[in-house]
């Protein structure tokens, strides 16, 4: 201990060994409740969607450039990797949208207690699954 404040941070574990207490956030020792997983997923899906804007930019720019460029972009979107990207993009968009609405409700001051945020959390997960499937069923039917 170099600092007297460390006295509060050092404790014995169940074996009687002196260890430093974990500081929050300490994800490797916490159980992962739904709210915690959805919180980091909201951020992760936001970052994924940022990468996904490259697809939208490519699609729009290709349409503005030439028939060949647009055909190439459409070919990629229809390829196995392209479809996987688009599926991931749909999941991320649906999740980020539903989770975002959940965040907006919190911002308005509602739904902070455990029963409410657990219900809205599961509602977000289910809505994401249903909306993604719906979009893909309609999309594949049109295609």
């Amino acid at each position: 201990m170099r600092d007297v404040r460390d006295a509060l941070m050092v404790a014995r574990n169940t074996d009687g060994k002196l260890v430093r207490r974990p500081l929050s956030p300490h994800v490797q020792v916490y159980r992962w409740p739904l709210s915690m997983a959805l919180s980091i997923l909201h951020r992760a899906s936001g970052v994924a969607l940022s990468v996904g804007t490259l697809l939208m930019t490519w699609w729009l720019a290709a349409a503005a450039v030439s028939d060949e460029a647009f055909a190439r972009a459409q070919w990629f979107m229809g390829s196995a990797i392209g479809l996987l990207c688009l599926f991931g993009w749909t999941v991320a968009l649906m999740f980020h949208a539903f989770s975002g609405i959940r965040h907006l409700v919190w911002d308005a001051g509602y739904g902070f207690d455990a029963p409410h945020y657990n219900t809205s959390g599961w509602a977000t997960v289910i809505a994401t699954g249903v909306a993604t499937l719906l979009v893909w069923i309609i999309g594949l039917a049109v295609w």
Partner: peptide
């Protein structure tokens, strides 16, 4: 965020309708 909810819905519907579309 609020603006993107209706705009995103519109975009999804449009893009789904344009699946496999020509230029």
């Amino acid at each position: 965020a609020v603006a993107l909810v209706p705009l995103g819905l519109w975009f999804i519907f449009s893009v789904v309708g344009l699946t496999g579309a020509t230029r």
